[in-house]
């Protein structure tokens, strides 16, 4: 990220000088920094609303209920773990919180899940197990029901119908999630055979 940032600024000065648009480059610093503040301030409202609603879901135990619903699927996916492992509830809570866009609440669950997975680990302490890789892949695929920040930015910028992106996003995120699970399974098999 450091190199990308430096590259963007330096190259825009050089290219601006080359194309004779240096004035526009300088102007864009002022207009765009004001724009950045405008976007962030606009986000406060919608993020606040969504985090408020989700807090109710958290307190009422709805997230817990949701995580119970998905745990049978988890047992199927993480078949290397003992059936009563405490990792399951943490994984389920992590995925449920992520699905609602509660990234900050999801991270502690995720870290607890990883710690549980480490307890079940039969390998060296600094080596990832298949279950860990699977859990990580599920997280990086970023399964999300409501992309609150994205909706917020569209609303702030005056989109006519911002919620129309919800279903397309859901389809993409769900298929990437399923793809991640299958790829992990395939890699888990391939890696084992290579090790032999």
């Amino acid at each position: 990220m450091n190199y990308i940032f430096a590259f963007l600024i330096l190259s825009s000065v050089i290219i601006g000088a080359y194309t004779g648009r240096l004035q526009e480059v300088v102007n864009s610093i002022f207009t765009s920094s004001a724009l950045a503040v405008q976007v962030a301030i606009g986000l406060i409202g919608i993020m606040g609303f969504w985090l408020g609603v989700v807090k109710i879901a958290e307190k009422s135990g709805l997230i817990f209920l949701f995580s119970k619903l998905i745990s049978p699927f988890l047992r199927l996916i993480f078949n290397e773990l003992p059936k009563n492992s405490s990792a399951f509830s943490n994984i389920a809570l992590n995925i449920s919180a992520n699905a609602l866009g509660l990234t900050n609440a999801a991270t502690p669950f995720g870290i607890n899940a990883m710690k549980d997975l480490k307890k079940e680990s039969k390998e060296n302490n600094d080596t990832a197990t298949n279950s860990m890789c699977m859990f990580l892949a599920m997280n990086t695929a970023g399964f999300q029901l409501v992309p609150a920040a994205v909706l917020g930015i569209l609303v702030v910028s005056g989109a006519k119908n911002p919620t129309e992106i919800i279903i397309p996003t859901f389809i993409v995120t769900l298929s990437a999630f399923i793809f991640a699970i299958f790829t992990s399974k395939i890699f888990a098999k391939f890696w084992k055979e290579r090790a032999k």
């Binding site: 940032f5 963007l8 600024i9 190259s11 825009s12 000065v13 194309t19 240096l22 765009s32 920094s33």
Partner: peptide, 12 residues
């Protein structure tokens, strides 16, 4: 936003 806008304004 600033670095990308600068980049865009330069015509890159």
């Amino acid at each position: 936003i600033v670095s990308v806008s600068m980049f865009r304004a330069s015509g890159a």
